[in-house]
């Protein structure tokens, strides 16, 4: 065994020799709010087909990305679910400009198949369910750093349910995880992004209903190019505002700037 050390070292050396991640190539890292999980993958595919340019997409909570950008993360473009995060980065001089509004999001209540709750957009059945004990667990995204969580909290407060529901909440790290929690069966329902509910991957788990958007601040989703943005990121930024990208966004339930819902 010991005499084989050179061979083992050699093997490991191959690992070093293998090219490190191709940072030099123009394949920008684009970070996006979790509600874009399905829509943006489709848009990126269309973008690749049209321009032969590739992207690396990472989804998560808008607040976490904002913090990572402050810490110097090598991202080139940031699609937030909340314009405030973008503005605050812009104020710190970390972005190229103050960005563009690319969509307005909506929230839905979703209940998994077999749940004692009804998918009721007025939240009346949720109120009844809280009163009669049908609701044991309810999923939303973490309001601290996920915009969809913050809007869910506002909607629940508006309906007068916050105090009775806050001890029953399970918090997803982002809205995509909240959707996971809401439909996996452990919770009786949850409030998630309309764009996620419209994906077959999610809607197969149960019915959902739009929540009236007068009960919460609008989800003004702002995108911005960061200081390190290269050609591809800039091209994608423009592509997001093209008719083909807008068509996909519309299909995922987003209200687009300059259009009526």
């Amino acid at each position: 065994m010991f005499k084989r050390i050179p061979a083992i070292l050699g093997l490991l050396a191959i690992l070093i020799a293998a090219p490190l991640p191709a940072r030099a190539q123009d394949v920008p890292v684009v970070v996006a709010a979790a509600d874009l999980q399905f829509a943006l993958v489709e848009i990126a595919d269309a973008f690749k087909k049209d321009t032969q340019r590739e992207l690396k997409l990472t989804f998560g909570s808008s607040g976490n990305f904002a913090r990572q950008i402050e810490q110097g993360a090598p991202f080139q473009m940031y699609l937030s679910a909340d314009e405030q995060f973008v503005f605050s980065l812009a104020d710190k001089g970390l972005t190229l400009d103050r960005g563009t509004l690319y969509a307005i999001g909506r929230i839905v209540i979703i209940v998994p198949h077999g749940s004692p709750l009804k998918a009721d957009g007025t939240l009346a059945d949720l109120k009844a369910g809280l009163a009669d004990g049908r609701v044991k667990r309810f999923a939303i995204a973490n309001p601290e750093h996920a915009p969809y969580g913050a809007r869910a909290e506002e909607a629940l407060r508006h309906a007068g349910l916050w105090d009775s529901i806050k001890d029953k909440l399970v918090l997803g790290e982002n809205v995509s995880q909240a959707a996971q929690f809401a439909t996996a069966g452990g919770a009786q329902g949850g409030i998630i992004a309309y764009s996620l509910a419209l994906s077959a991957n999610v809607s197969k788990h149960g019915p959902y209903a739009l929540i009236d958007d007068t009960g919460h601040q609008p989800l003004r989703q702002q995108m911005v190019l960061l200081k390190k943005a290269g050609e591809t990121a800039k091209a994608f930024y423009a592509y997001m505002q093209s008719p083909s990208a807008r068509a996909i966004m519309r299909r995922y339930g987003f209200v687009l700037p300059g259009e009526q819902s």
Partner: peptide, 9 residues
């Protein structure tokens, strides 16, 4: 790491 494909994912 921050979950960047091909870099830290």
């Amino acid at each position: 790491g921050g979950s960047i494909p091909g870099e830290t994912k």
